[in-house]
Design a protein around this nucleic acid. Structure first.
Length: 190
DNA sequence: TGCCGGATCCTG
DNA sequence: AGGATCCGGCAA
């Protein structure tokens, strides 16, 4: 069984709060009659149009329109011409903020690596076909874990945003301390 | 219309 | 360390 999808109010909050609260939650994708499920262990917050590392910093464009839409929807994009990344839109519509899901601990029906945003999408089967989908539905959604868990949260700089000026070093990456499925931010970049 | 570069990953 | 691979965004 799967629990109920988190309600829209969960997403309509400050992005950093949503990011931290997503750790330990379960991401679920129904596809081809199976339920793929993983535990969220690493995320990054992209806090709004003023965040130079965020796609929304370019304003409302065809690509970023979902980010500027209502909270609780998935923003999926193609990166490097071959990988997908999935975000959850946060804050009230018009804000342009989202949380990038970077790594999962595999739970059900996950055959493959989920350690990194591109791998997470590949193994969960998330593609551009899911861009804009409502996360309060029953296809792609997030639930509370069956029982509460305790863990420490590690906070660090986001990966791959060295170009973002003053925002490059903002500590907006959050992960579960000691979890083996957290991605290795290969070379903190420069 | 053309070009530049990226919220990545794999191989050597 | 370098290549794959393509589209969005901006300059011209």
């Amino acid at each position: 069984m799967t629990g109920a999808a988190l309600p829209r109010e969960f997403y309509a909050r400050p992005t950093v709060d949503v990011a931290r609260d997503l750790l330990g939650m379960q991401l679920i994708h129904r596809v081809d009659g199976t339920v793929r499920r993983g535990r969220i262990v690493e995320v990054e917050a992209y806090v709004g149009a003023h965040d130079l590392a965020s796609h929304s910093s370019r304003g409302v464009t065809p690509r970023t329109s979902v980010m500027y839409g209502p909270p609780g929807h998935a923003y999926v994009y193609l990166i490097y011409g071959m990988h997908h990344c999935v975000n959850v839109v946060t804050e009230p519509a018009g804000h342009g903020a989202a949380v990038l899901l970077r790594a999962l601990e595999p739970l059900d029906s996950l055959a493959g690596n989920t350690r990194g945003p591109g791998l997470l999408c590949r193994t969960m089967g998330i593609t551009l076909a899911r861009n804009g989908i409502d996360l309060t539905g029953d296809v792609l959604f997030i639930t509370l874990p069956p029982e509460a868990e305790r863990f420490e949260i590690v906070q660090s700089a986001r990966v791959g945003v060295a170009y973002a000026g003053d925002w490059a070093d903002a500590p907006l990456r959050f992960s579960i301390a000691g979890n083996p499925y957290v991605s290795r931010a290969s070379g903190s970049r420069r």
